[in-house]
C-alpha cells in the first residue's frame, strides 16, 4: 500500500495526469491516494467496531445480572495499557515529524519505539487474558459469576482490537525496515503517515473500548 501511495504521488504530483489528480485535489485536497484509501478503510473498520460495541451495549442493558466491570476486570492494568498506547501514538507523530525534517535515523528510532509500545500492550493483554481465565472464571463463551455475555463481549471486542494492535505492530516494523533501507531519506514520508493513521485509529478505538468496557 505504501508503495502505491508513493508512486501515485510521484507520478501524479507534477501534472502528467492532470485531470485525475485535479479531481482528487478538489475533494480531498493534498491527501494522497494512499491516505484517502486508508481513511476509507478506517471508516469501514470503525463501523465494524461500532457494530460490536452496539451488540455489547444491547446485551448489557437488557441483562439485569450484568456485573460491574471493575469487580472482575483490572482497571489499573488496562489504564496502564491505555497510557502505553497514548505514548506510542505520540512517538508515532514525533517519528513522522522527524521524517519530514529529513532525519530518517530519528524517525527509525521513534518508529521502533512505537512498535515496542504496541508489543508491550499485547504482552499486557495476554497476561490479562490468562489472569481472567484462571482467577475470574472468564472463558470465551462462559462466565462463572454472571451472564456468559459479559465474558464473550469482553473477549470479542478486546480480542478484535488486539488483532489490530498486532497487525499495527507488523505494519510499523515494515515501515521501520523501509526507513532503514533509506526509502524516506528525501522527507517524503506520506506512506509513514498512512501507517500512522492506522496506528492512531487503533489508539482511538482503545480509548473508546477502555471507557465502554472497563469504566462504565
Amino acid at each position: 500500500m505504501g508503495q502505491v501511495a508513493q508512486g501515485a504521488q510521484d507520478s501524479h504530483g507534477h501534472g502528467e495526469h492532470g485531470a485525475l489528480h485535479k479531481r482528487s485535489n478538489d475533494i480531498f485536497g493534498s491527501a494522497s491516494n494512499g491516505k484517502v484509501g486508508m481513511w476509507v478503510f478506517l471508516m469501514t473498520d470503525g463501523l465494524t467496531f461500532g457494530g460490536l460495541l452496539l451488540a455489547y451495549g444491547i446485551l448489557r442493558v437488557r441483562n439485569p445480572d450484568w456485573p460491574h466491570p471493575s469487580d472482575y476486570l483490572g482497571i489499573g492494568l488496562s489504564a496502564l495499557a491505555t497510557f502505553l498506547l497514548i505514548c506510542s501514538s505520540v512517538s508515532m507523530v514525533i517519528a513522522q515529524a522527524a521524517g519530514e525534517a529529513r532525519k530518517p535515523r530519528k524517525m527509525l528510532n521513534y518508529l521502533l519505539l512505537t512498535a515496542l509500545g504496541g508489543a508491550i500492550f499485547l504482552g499486557i493483554q495476554v497476561y490479562e487474558y490468562i489472569h481472567l481465565f484462571h482467577a475470574q472464571g472468564m472463558s470465551f463463551s462462559d462466565f462463572m459469576h454472571g451472564p456468559p455475555q459479559f465474558s464473550s463481549t469482553f473477549f470479542i471486542v478486546t480480542g478484535f482490537h488486539g488483532a489490530h494492535v498486532f497487525s499495527g505492530v507488523v505494519y510499523l516494523l515494515i515501515m521501520a525496515l523501509r526507513t532503514a533501507a533509506g526509502k524516506y531519506d528525501d522527507g517524503n514520508v506520506d506512506s509513514v503517515e498512512v501507517a500512522g493513521l492506522f496506528w492512531h485509529f487503533v489508539d482511538l478505538v482503545w480509548i473508546l473500548v477502555f471507557t465502554l468496557i472497563y469504566l462504565l
Binding site: 475533494i27 481513511w39 476509507v40 471508516m43 469501514t44 452496539l54 508515532m92
Partner: peptide
C-alpha cells in the same frame, strides 16, 4: 483524530469520511 491523525490539515471530505462511522453508529 484531529491532531494526531492530522484531520486539522485535511479538506472537508476527509473529515466527513472520518466522522461517518460515528454518525452511522
Amino acid at each position: 483524530g484531529y491532531y494526531f491523525m492530522h484531520l486539522e490539515y485535511e479538506k472537508r471530505w476527509t473529515k466527513i469520511v472520518a466522522v461517518l462511522p460515528l454518525l452511522i453508529v
